[in-house]
């Protein structure tokens, strides 16, 4: 009885120590990887020669401001939407005057590969480039989208995912742009 408690406690303490050590020695690297992935995504939607991205200190969704040699090159808003299989996390880049969408990058998504997962492909992603950031986006199925009307083409067979992305942007982008306008003179 006593031995059993000692052995199990001993094993658990030892396991805890080993894991604490492993975590302590790898935590910095894991965090650096996360930041590198975030920067890579930001750089794809808001490129520059020597871009700097800083997180704005605001309420609500996370907003990054991109500067290149002192000039603001745009903002990126972190948007989450409930997709078909799980949460879709994306970064939406907007121009410095907050009027045009510069690009959409998907940070995390677990949609069905080959169907909803195709949102990460340029054919879908790049449709958002140049759309009006201030007006709601609409999606169409199987017909040519009218870019003047802020339309994009949904992925065939993955309407739920496409709709989730569009609705996520519509719900979060406008308030985020308002926040930027209020915060930044």
């Amino acid at each position: 009885m006593k031995k059993m408690i000692i052995v199990l406690t001993g094993v658990m303490v030892l396991s805890g120590l080993v894991l604490a050590g492993t975590f302590a020695s790898l935590a910095d690297r894991i965090e650096a990887n996360r930041i590198a992935a975030l920067y890579a995504s930001l750089e794809r939607i808001l490129p520059g020669t020597d871009p700097v991205y800083e997180e704005l200190d605001v309420e609500g969704p996370t907003i990054y401001r991109a500067t290149d040699a002192g000039d603001i090159t745009g903002y990126a808003v972190r948007i989450q939407a409930q997709g078909y299989a799980g949460t879709i996390t994306m970064l939406v880049g907007v121009s410095p005057d907050l009027e045009t969408i510069r690009g959409v990058e998907f940070v995390e998504q677990v949609e069905t590969p080959g169907l909803g997962g195709r949102i990460t492909e340029p054919e879908f992603r790049r449709q958002f480039d140049g759309l009006d950031a201030d007006a709601p986006i609409d999606y169409v199925l199987n017909i040519e989208p009218d870019r003047e009307e802020n339309e994009i083409q949904a992925i065939s067979g993955a309407t739920i995912t496409s709709r989730a992305v569009v609705r996520g942007i519509n719900a979060t982008l406008e308030p985020a742009l308002e926040t930027i306008r209020r915060q930044v003179p």
Binding site: S15, V18, L19, T22, F23, L26, R29, I30, N33
Partner: peptide, 12 residues
Amino acid sequence: TFVTIADLVLKA
């Protein structure tokens, strides 16, 4: 314990 180590190493 070893699974967690494997997970952390992969992440890092």
